[in-house]
Simulated scan of single mutants.
Amino acid sequence: MYKGSTNLKVRYAETDQMGIVHHSNYYVYFEAAREDFIQGAGISYRDMEEQGIMMPLVETQCRYMEGAKYADKLIIETNIDELSPAKVALQYSVIREADNKVLAKGKTIQTFVDSKSFRIINIKKKYPDIWEKLEALKQED
Rank of each mutant, 00 (worst) to 15 (best):
M1E: 09
Y2P: 01
K3A: 11
G4I: 00
G4K: 02
G4W: 01
L8M: 15
R11V: 03
R11H: 10
Y12M: 05
A13R: 01
T15M: 05
Q17S: 11
M18F: 13
G19R: 12
H23T: 06
S24A: 15
N25W: 02
Y26R: 09
Y27A: 11
Y27P: 07
F30E: 09
E31D: 15
A33Q: 04
E35A: 09
E35H: 12
F37T: 08
Q39A: 13
I43N: 06
I43S: 05
S44C: 13
M48P: 08
E49C: 04
E49L: 02
E50R: 09
E50W: 01
E50A: 14
G52P: 05
M54P: 00
M54C: 07
M54A: 09
V58W: 12
V58F: 06
V58M: 10
E59R: 14
T60C: 11
T60E: 10
Y64N: 04
A68M: 13
A68V: 02
A68P: 05
A68G: 15
A71E: 15
D72V: 08
K73C: 10
L74M: 03
L74K: 11
L74H: 02
I75P: 02
I76M: 04
I76D: 07
E77S: 09
I80S: 10
I80P: 00
D81Y: 04
E82W: 02
S84V: 06
A86L: 13
K87M: 11
V88T: 06
L90R: 08
L90E: 08
L90Y: 05
Y92S: 03
Y92L: 10
Y92K: 09
S93R: 15
V94K: 04
I95G: 06
R96E: 12
E97W: 04
E97N: 13
N100D: 15
N100P: 01
N100M: 07
L103D: 06
L103R: 03
I109L: 12
Q110P: 01
F112C: 06
V113A: 03
D114I: 06
S115Y: 04
K116V: 00
F118A: 10
I121C: 01
I121G: 07
N122F: 07
N122Q: 06
Y127G: 03
D129P: 05
I130T: 05
W131Q: 08
E132V: 06
E132Q: 14
K133A: 13
K133P: 09
L134H: 07
A136F: 04
D141P: 04
